[in-house]
Every structure is written in structure tokens, then in C-alpha cells.
């Protein structure tokens, strides 16, 4: 209960941070890493805490986390070497 509220606040803060980075006009590689990391962290919270996949046995958690890592990794690659 309390943990959920805490996670929610972190998600909001990370969103605000990403938004702030863009609003501040930080662009290109300087924005890429923090924004992608924030997204990764947010995704992990949703997957592990909200979807409650952490602690669930089997492949589900790793498949979903793997999806997130793969997509973000390739996005980072595509943006870095555009």
C-alpha cells in the first residue's frame, strides 16, 4: 500500500524529470541517456511492482523485462547512430 504510493511518486518524479530535460532544451546525446534510463526505471517499476511480476516464477517476468530492455536498447542505438 505504502510501497505502491511510493512507487507512484517515483514514477511521477521521473516523468517530470524527463519532461524537464526536454523543456530545458537539452537535446541529442545529452538528453538521450537520462531520458532512456528514466524510462527503463519507470518500466521496471510498472512491470515488477504494478504488474507484480517480481517474485513470480517462470519466464514471464524476464520476457517482459527483456522486451523493455531490447526496445529501449535498440531505440538508444538508433538515436545514437542516426
Amino acid at each position: 500500500m505504502k510501497a505502491a504510493t511510493f512507487n507512484w511518486l517515483i514514477l511521477m518524479a521521473l516523468t517530470a524529470l524527463s519532461f524537464g530535460v526536454a523543456e530545458a532544451g537539452v537535446a541529442g546525446g545529452a538528453a538521450l541517456v537520462p531520458v532512456l534510463l528514466a524510462t527503463l526505471f519507470k518500466g521496471r517499476i510498472v512491470i515488477d511492482r504494478f504488474m507484480a511480476l517480481q517474485g513470480v516464477g517462470g519466464a514471464w517476468r524476464w520476457v517482459v523485462l527483456g522486451w523493455l530492455l531490447l526496445v529501449l536498447g535498440l531505440i538508444g542505438y538508433a538515436f545514437q547512430y542516426a
Partner: peptide, 23 residues
């Protein structure tokens, strides 16, 4: 139902920085 809703959220969490923020 919750799992589906979180999935939609998760997708948007990636979509938002990708399309709105990163340049």
C-alpha cells in the same frame, strides 16, 4: 484487467519519451 491496464501504461511510458521528448 489490471495486467492489461498496466500494459497500456507500460507502452505509453515508452511511447511518450520516444515520440515527444527524444530528438
Amino acid at each position: 484487467g489490471a495486467a492489461y491496464w498496466h500494459m497500456i501504461d507500460l507502452v505509453w511510458i515508452v511511447l511518450f519519451p520516444l515520440i515527444y521528448l527524444l530528438n
